[in-house]
Design a protein around this nucleic acid. Structure first.
Lengths: 329, 329
DNA sequence: CTGAAAGCGCTTACAG
DNA sequence: CTGAAAGCGCTTACAG
């Protein structure tokens, strides 16, 4: 089965290749009769334009790449999938093509962002999941292709950003815990290597006077272990409340609290509102991010940036979800 | 900043374009001196081969597409993400390029699989998430590109398959419930429109004498509602056990059982082992699929099919995970 | 071991 | 409104 090309359509219709091309690209400057003839012939022959040829020959390329870092590390965390789905859906409504690329720190070392974009003729980029230690994070500081970074702070006025206002969200959550009567809010952060973690930490710091911060690497196990150790060494008090910078860590702490018989005695709050948060017992008080909106604005702002050069920074509204883990018996 | 092409490298080195191309494609037939010179010049200029041009000019293309259907429908279900990650990782070890494409029933109507593959010069295809009612499912019956379908039964000896042995797994789970002393196993299936659902149903049927089957559309809410209604109309008995064809439905039933105060009285089992399964209370007895292995064999078999024409059908081992939901008080 | 030239399937000024 | 021709950046027989 030979591939059918634009030439075959030209032959079939007796028109020139240029005309066929114009019909397919809606040049407007063509007679209705021709349009009909070409459309019919194309359908008959089963013609589909070859995208590589199109890309190569066309001046104005329109390809948006989504780059996701470390997509399959944390079980239960579906954010990458949601971002992917959201970006695809929003891009479908435009005439930009979509390319997906999954990366990780190994691959980042092998091929630079710029290399990748040159190879694929990328027009614009949406990127998510980078940590501060990642090569691509560094590269973004001097990157000159239209780019929107999700959940990242980049010191580069060519790079737009979309994220939850992590500072404000952490501030509000901390205030909520205080308002619920807890005197001593302990903050369990992930690492200092993530922009979102830094932001959440500073929000926490702004809301409390007596700060106590520990790090559990965004890991359920490490958070679990931390809680066990802390209980042994210092002991939790009724007036304590734990605010974890991710639901996964909060869940680790809740698990420890089950063992320690501390459930419903010491409040726990998380961040993200992953699916687990509402299913676990006790259900978890947390901050819900609006990933659909984040994806939507990532696409929207990127296209705006490509077309007008205007770089935007946007916070997407969040929601504090109060559940059982902060209501004490 | 002009794009640097193979021509620039040729100019810089005083060699011909053909030679540069050969160096980059490891033709072997070139002097070490030349290789070094070219490599150096390429690095200096920051040359990266353009993939569109490569694709267009090359006879032997090597592009594998992963097509995922309806990626963002069910919260808590990360299978598409795991498949994506697995396929990417396994493809990274080969010299095939990877293309990702998310589809849904609307998009399937707009563009046929064949059209999509022609446009992109796809060499081979991995596809997951299709339901029997999907246009692409129909199309696969007569598809002639090397293809591996995940979790699908296709009547086409050009299409390979990789999946859990759903029949056997459902059979074993049903037997387990019987062995645990439950007399009456009620099967809650999703729909008749999914191959996996049909397979699980027949496994169930093979293992029990008194079959009772209901459908809850793979929906937590519908399963919840079903349990409430059933309790009202017929009433659950101690000897009953519920086997749901997905964890999500099993969880809906557990939720209903909480309301009905039936937890630990009537056994519930699920299928999939999603993250939630181990976190919910009571934790859920279920069938664990090995998605990493499924992805691995999907890639491996597809490449084998592309290179040798041999079409394979493969079952990936599963595991029955016994947890609290089937241990009665 | 290397080069000249045709060709992959399109788009797009330039003419008419 | 339509066509002829150059060109996008590569690969690959064919010569030498």
């Amino acid at each position: 089965m030979k591939k059918v090309t634009i030439k075959d359509v030209a032959l079939q219709t007796g028109l020139s290749v240029s005309t066929i091309s114009r019909v397919f690209n809606n040049y407007g400057d063509i007679s209705d009769k021709t349009i009909k003839k070409v459309t019919l012939a194309a359908k008959e022959l089963g013609y589909t334009p070859n995208s590589a040829a199109k890309q190569l020959s066309s001046k104005k390329k329109k390809i948006i790449a989504l780059i996701l870092n470390e997509i399959n590390v944390t079980p239960g965390v579906a954010m990458p999938l949601e971002v992917l789905g959201g970006v695809v859906d929003n891009l479908d409504k435009t005439d930009y093509e979509f390319v997906f690329y999954a990366t990780n720190s190994t691959k980042q070392k092998q091929k630079s962002l710029k290399q990748f974009c040159n190879e694929r003729d990328i027009t614009g980029l949406i990127i998510q999941g980078l940590r501060i230690s990642d090569p691509y994070y560094q590269e973004l500081a001097t990157f000159d292709l239209p780019t929107v970074a999700i959940d990242l702070d980049i010191e580069n006025d060519k790079v737009g950003t979309v994220s939850t206002d992590n500072v404000k969200a952490a501030f509000e959550m901390t205030r909520l815990l205080i308002n619920l009567g807890h005197k001593n809010i302990i903050f369990i952060n992930g690492t200092k290597m993530a922009t979102v973690a830094q932001a959440r930490e500073s929000g926490y710091l702004a809301a409390t006077e007596h700060s106590q911060i520990f790090y559990a690497n965004f890991s359920e196990n490490e958070a679990y272990q931390w809680a066990i150790d802390y209980a042994k060494n210092k002991g939790f008090k009724k007036e304590d409340a734990i605010f974890a910078a991710s639901d996964i860590m909060a869940i680790g702490i809740i698990k420890a609290f089950r063992t320690l018989n501390l459930v419903n005695k010491v409040a726990v709050a998380g961040f993200d509102d992953i699916t687990l948060a509402s299913y676990i017992t006790p259900s978890l008080t947390t901050v819900r991010q609006d990933i659909r909106k984040i994806s939507e604005y990532a696409v929207r702002n990127l296209i705006c940036q490509i077309e007008t050069g205007e770089v935007k920074h946007r916070f997407i509204p969040f929601q504090i979800i109060e559940r059982e883990s902060t209501s004490m018996s």
